[in-house]
Design a protein around this nucleic acid. Structure first.
Length: 423
RNA sequence: GGAGAGAUGGGUGAGUGGCUGAAACCACCGGUUUGCUAAACCGGCGUACCUGUCAAAAGGUACCGGGGGUUCGAAUCCCCCUCUCUCCGCCA
């Protein structure tokens, strides 16, 4: 949610920049400003009336003490009339505030100046590429066939027990999962992140805080019996730790990491993109979250970007970094870098991480603030990134490292897997 | 799941209808004193919105878990919800 003050001050800039996201903000911004004016006007009226009533009440108390009951009675009736009036005003005021808020949350975050205009992922800007694409023989197998061949992931069994998109990992496949999780967590802790193990279900307030609700409600699994949602990413519980929190300047940067299973309904997904591990309803991910002073958040974004790159380098996977264009940028993000690894047999780039700066958009929404040097509270900036999402990493590892003897494990992972080869 | 108790500012905790945005103490910040540290003393110390202003100062309103009600007036009385604690039951 954008700050109202900012909309008041930078109306034109905001409209201009949101155009990069292909969002026509003109009308909505005008409406917000009109409602805001109305709200302020009403509040002034209401406050004045309440102030008058408070004054009268004090007088009544005084008169009662002095035993002047008759006089008090007169004022009482006046006060009662005022009260009725303030009640009507307050009702109207609440309506306006509610409406203002509901419109305010429809306004997406303003993209950073470096975000290129564009309508789809085709317009994303490749800013970095590293590693050699694997030269696999023509008979190289896609990961879902390798998974079957070596009996390390069972998709059919998942379908039987749960449904499509809920695979079983088995034997060395399961061990590989565990190895990756430990590898990612250890790396993050070494980089200064504090490890958390979050709840996998969250309440509606938390869903709202990070922006999953109300707009992406259909993407989360909902446990109606208890009014809880399964987390689509650890970002939600980890960032919401700081909902309604006021930090000190000394607390920056807050660096947290968490492994969690992630649950996504992925309603509407279909086709070749979703085969095998490419898109699942349940998957594992290690997520890094930082909370930073607004002046330093972009340095932090770079730091996180470099960190994710270091992981892929250690896994010896060819990868590239994309700067998302306006059209592909999420509702809440100001700037996002996507990481893609090349999966040799599918001959496709697969997204394995998304590192974003939300600036104050999430923080303002969840009232995460800090006291600045001047002693005023202002929203912090929040950032997060996957480091990393497992399934597509596994897909690329399996496909790229396949050879006659089996699938070889990259050096960095071997101390975690305890084996060099899946055969 | 059953029974009971409770929820007050960063913390402890007072407050059962008006003079309480809230005592006191601790923590914290500033100052005085002081070889240094400590102690002592003095002062400050919540959040949001509105008015005001170049900015401030100043003022107003709301907030004592959340929502609603009674009353001229509610932290204080009533109703609902949430959460916490204790005991019992169940259980990884």
């Amino acid at each position: 949610m954008l700050e109202l003050q900012r909309i008041r001050k930078q109306k034109d800039t905001i409209i201009e920049r949101l155009a990069v996201k292909n969002f026509d903000a003109k009308n909505i911004v005008e409406e917000i400003l009109a409602l805001d004016n109305e709200r302020r006007h009403l509040q002034k009226q209401l406050d004045d009336t309440l102030s008058e009533t408070n004054g009268l009440s004090k007088t009544i108390g005084q008169l009662f003490k002095e035993g002047k009951r008759n006089q008090a009675g007169e004022i009482k009736s006046h006060s009662a009339a005022l009260k009725a009036r303030s009640k009507t005003m307050s009702y109207k005021f609440d309506e306006i505030v509610k409406k203002l808020r509901s419109i305010l949350i429809e306004l997406p975050n303003v993209p950073h100046p470096s975000v290129p205009k564009g309508v789809s992922e085709a317009d994303n800007e490749i800013i970095f590429e590293e590693g050699e694409l694997p030269a696999l023989p023509d008979n190289a197998l896609p990961h879902w066939e390798l998974a079957r061949k070596y009996q390390i992931i069972d998709f059919d069994l998942g379908s039987k027990v749960t449904g499509a998109g809920f695979p079983f990992y088995r034997g060395k496949g399961a061990r590989l999962q565990r190895a990756l999780i430990n590898f990612f967590l250890d790396e993050a802790v070494a980089a200064g992140y504090l490890e958390y193990q979050p709840p996998l279900l969250i309440n509606a307030d938390s869903g709202f805080g990070t922006g999953q609700l109300p707009d992406k409600e259909g993407q989360m699994y909902y446990v109606g019996e208890d009014k809880l949602y399964l987390i689509p990413t650890a970002e939600v519980p980890i960032t919401n730790i700081y909902r309604n929190v006021i930090l000190g300047e000394d607390d920056f940067p807050v660096k947290n990491v968490a492994y969690s299973s992630c649950f996504r309904r992925e309603a509407g997904s279909y086709g070749k993109d979703v085969r095998g591990l490419n898109r699942l309803h349940q998957f594992d991910k290690v997520e890094i979250v930082q909370i930073q002073h607004p002046e330093h958040s972009y340095e932090t974004l770079d730091e996180m970007k470099d960190y994710v790159a270091s992981l892929l380098r250690k896994l010896e996977l060819p990868f590239r970094i994309l700067r998302l264009c306006g059209g592909d940028l999420s509702f809440t993000s100001a700037l996002t870098f996507d990481f893609e690894v090349f999966s040799g047999a599918q001959k496709r780039w697969l997204e394995v991480s998304s590192v974003s700066n939300f600036e104050s958009y999430q923080a303002n929404r969840m009232k995460l603030r800090f006291k600045n040097k001047a002693g005023k509270t202002q929203p912090t900036h929040t950032l997060n990134g996957s480091a990393l999402a497992l399934p597509r990493i596994v897909a690329a590892l399996l496909e790229n490292n396949q050879c006659d003897k089996g699938i070889s494990i990259p050096q960095a992972l071997r101390i975690y897997t305890g084996f060099d080869l899946i055969a």
